[in-house]
Design a protein around this nucleic acid. Sequence first.
RNA 1: GGAGAGAUGGCUGAGUGGUCGAAAGCGCUCCCCUGCUAAGGGAGUAAGGGUUAAUAGCCCUUCGAGGGUUCGAAUCCCUCUCUCUCCGCCA
Length: 429
Amino acid sequence: MIDPKYLRQNAAAVATELARRGFDFDAGAYVELEEQRKKLQVATEALRAERNSSAKSIGQAKAQGKDVAPLLAAVKDLGDRLDAAGIDLSAVLEGIQSIEYGLPNILADRVPTGLDEFDNREERRWGEIPTFEFDARDHVDIGSGLGMLDFDSANKISGSRFTVMHAGLARLQRALIQLMLDTHTADHGYQEVYVPYLVHSAALYGTGQLPKFEDDQFKTNGEVPFYLIPTAEVPVTNIVRDSIIDADRLPLRFVAHTPCFRSEAGSYGRDTRGMIRQHQFEKVELVQMVRPSDSEAALEELTSHAERILQILELPYRVVTLCSGDVGFSAAITYDLEVWLPGQENYREISSCSCFTDFQARRMQARWRNPTTNKPELLHTLNGSGVAAGRALVAVMENYQQSDGSIRIPAALLPYMGGLTAIEPMIGY
RNA sequence: GGAGAGAUGGCUGAGUGGUCGAAAGCGCUCCCCUGCUAAGGGAGUAAGGGUUAAUAGCCCUUCGAGGGUUCGAAUCCCUCUCUCUCCGCCA
């Protein structure tokens, strides 16, 4: 959420800024609503103040044994007036709130202006793009050649956009997850957390998925619904919701491995082949809560932590800064890591590292106590995939494929593979 | 699933209709005193919001959540959620 105070005083400027995202904010209508709010709120609070002071005088008069009848008569219609004012006020407040919850974050200055992913700015590349002495296959061909990537079973069980993986392939994904968790906890100073995969709506409001992206979520149908997490960002970031963190505990750094569930509404035709875009996938997520003055540096650092995983795995990648039209709703700036996929002869997103400034913190009331002011102030939150395990598996499969159809195990994963040095075709299962 | 108890500020915990945003203690901050340390004395110490140039005043809201009664609710009534204890069941 954008600071309502700032929004009020700079509505037109915010509208100009949000236009960079292609977002249409009607500043005039907002300001008009704001003026109504101010009028109504001042009036309502004045009535409440009147009620409070009369109630107090009645109490005092009663204590002194005086006759309170005239005082009671004086406040007779106050309740009705208060009710009426309250109804008007809450209608306006509701309107304002729904606007405010629907506004995306203000972008960082250095976010390049652009329309879509084609306007993203490449920052750097790492690694050698591999060459093959045979026709490189994509992960679907490799996986089914191994007999380990089983979309038939997945389809039977759950339909499209699900995967069943067998034997070495399943283990390889687990090894990737282990490697990531070990690296981030041992080398990068993150604390591992285990979190719920079902969350209530307040958590999704906090990180910004709700109210706007309800359609992207899977939801249970109980009286109080649960949502399946679309990313560990949701439960992990909400750890600090409604709390005030001591300054000496900052920065908080969490790493969590969770499955992620996305309905992929609006992506019906995209990436239908293979396991690039699934309803369920595994991800290791990095989350940080930092002092506002530290967030810019923290994003660079967090991104480097995600990059480190690809470097350890010796997977070629590039880093892009998302352009204004491509940055997600809650983020002020996002770096995507795109890994090279020989099967597609293209770079594909494998990690998204974002700084949310105080946007999520304001929604969550996540604060820290600033020792210089001794006042609670909003934190800055950041997160990034470190990295998406399903896509990392795809990347390893395609980059480490061999002419005989097997997959060589990257050196960094050997300790996690129980002696396997390659994944060889399997017969039956 | 059954039975019972409970939810109050950073923590412990009082408070059954008015002077209660809330006793007391702990913790924390500042000051005083004692030549260190320990002990002692004093003051202060919730959050959100509005108004405003203002983190100066002033005002509103908040005692698990939501509704109700009342001039007035932490306190009375209703609904819900959560926590704890015991029993049952269970990975």
